[in-house]
């Protein structure tokens, strides 16, 4: 995936490493890292920074039997090995974990004009959803409350800012109003995450309108 042109910001990578992002953002960052070695290397560098900091951190006193208690935990539990790599799908591994499988497990609902979406259940401080945009179709003009991240999983789309292909992630703040249009060749599937205000969430089950507002 060396064709990736649009990457995560250092700000997001650092927050991911620090563990301070909402779950929906953690998910889309993990999905992008699964596709992009450049960002993965950057993310692991931020992890190394966290490691250096923890190494210098003031110690806390342990309870007296801390080591013995840890050894008891170890005795009761088997050694762990790396999980088997999953079969490659359209959805990156961390997304498959949330969806419970690849595309065939996604429960789409139409939001009008051929566009479909599927909300991925996460903690409520941000929202993640899969978007299905038929080839050549447009997602209606919309603006954002807060930050919206859009990761292309299949196909490509074009908006006012640039062209986004597989693995590319668009980081849009609230200033951006855009009309993403899927490329002609292939249906476009994206993962999007937004930290839009909660008051819109209750409207989500209704069809197109709330989507336009996010």
């Amino acid at each position: 995936m060396s064709d990736i042109k649009h990457h995560l910001t250092d700000q997001l990578l650092m927050a991911y490493s620090a563990g301070t992002l909402p779950e929906a953002f953690d998910l889309i960052v993990a999905a992008h890292l699964s596709m992009c070695d450049a960002c993965r290397a950057a993310a692991e560098s931020f992890d190394a920074t966290g490691g250096a900091l923890i190494d210098d951190l003031a110690s806390a006193d342990l309870s007296d039997d801390s080591f013995a208690a840890t050894m008891r935990l170890i005795e009761d539990a088997p050694m762990l090995t790396a999980p088997k790599p999953r079969k490659k799908g359209v959805l990156p591994a961390p997304v498959q974990d949330f969806v419970g499988g690849d595309l065939e497990s996604v429960k789409w609902r139409s939001i009008g004009m051929g566009v479909k979406q599927a909300i991925i259940p996460t903690e409520k401080d941000a929202t993640a959803r899969l978007l299905y945009i038929p080839a050549g179709c447009a997602v209606p003009d919309h603006g954002h409350r807060g930050t919206e991240l859009t990761l292309v999983l299949q196909g490509a789309f074009q908006d006012e800012t640039d062209h986004f292909g597989p693995g590319d992630i668009e980081v849009a703040d609230e200033d951006l109003f855009h009309t993403p249009v899927a490329d002609i060749g292939e249906d476009c599937i994206c993962l999007a995450a937004t930290d839009a205000p909660l008051r819109f969430r209750s409207l989500l089950p209704r069809l197109a309108q709330p989507f336009l507002r996010i």
Binding site: G19, E23, D26, L27, V29, A30, A31, L33, S34, R40, A43, A82, P83, K84, P85, R86, P92, A93, P94, D97, F98, E123
Partner: peptide, 12 residues
């Protein structure tokens, strides 16, 4: 959180 943190795909 209720769930485990999403992690990138493992490189075995």
């Amino acid at each position: 959180r209720k769930r485990r943190r999403p992690e990138p795909e493992d490189l075995p």
